[in-house]
Amino acid sequence: MRVALAVPCYVDQLRPQAARATLTLLRRLGCEVSLAFDAPCCGQPMFNAGVVTAARAAAENWVRASAPFDAIVMPSGSCTHHVRHHLPPFLGGEAAGHAANVTFELCEFIAGPLGTPTLVGRFPHRVAMHLGCHAQRGLRLGGSSELHQPISGPMHALLSGLDGLTLVPLDRPDECCGFGGSFAVGEPEVSAVMGRDKLTDVIAHGAEVLVSSDPSCLLHLEAIAAHNGTTLRTLHVAELLEEATR
């Protein structure tokens, strides 16, 4: 299996440690990872804003870069959702279909194609888990409360399998954190209140660590946590799993 690491644009710029942790973790799990995937952005921000020309250019570049690989792994549910569900109808053609089929969010790749549904590791902390909306309801990487499903899925399984880790229950486990990409720019007040409410829920249940598979949610929540002076530690799931399996 030819596996490549894809680093989404905002991870590259704002949270490179999530990409480094992804690479370290995948290699530790015995996966050979190519760094030759050279598309910087899947084009989601432009696509969502209706900027079709720029979105198409980025998407076509992504599809071209995907061609040589059997799996492209990203520390982002949101970008994975865009590539898998939007690019085939947007661009059409077999190459876009290939890109959609081989692009994976990190946890689903580890638990699925890599065949490692649980990891051996230790993380003795109270952890609150947050799935981004695209991972949760777009990729279905977790159960949804409105469908009467328990929160489950690959990230939940990988975290629950670690020694010493306690997943704290939340009052609203699958409520949006309020980031929503450009939603946070267009609707700053609602966005910030949603983030505050999410953190209040997390802190009220005694979590020491907040973990997410989406760096964009973390970007939003971290900024609010810092503004409020909380001591909550925020980690991308790649960073947590890498630390736990050292």
Partner: peptide, 10 residues
């Protein structure tokens, strides 16, 4: 360049 319709509508 197409206009980002989301921004003003919001």
């Amino acid at each position: 360049m197409s206009r980002p319709v989301g921004t003003t509508a919001h």
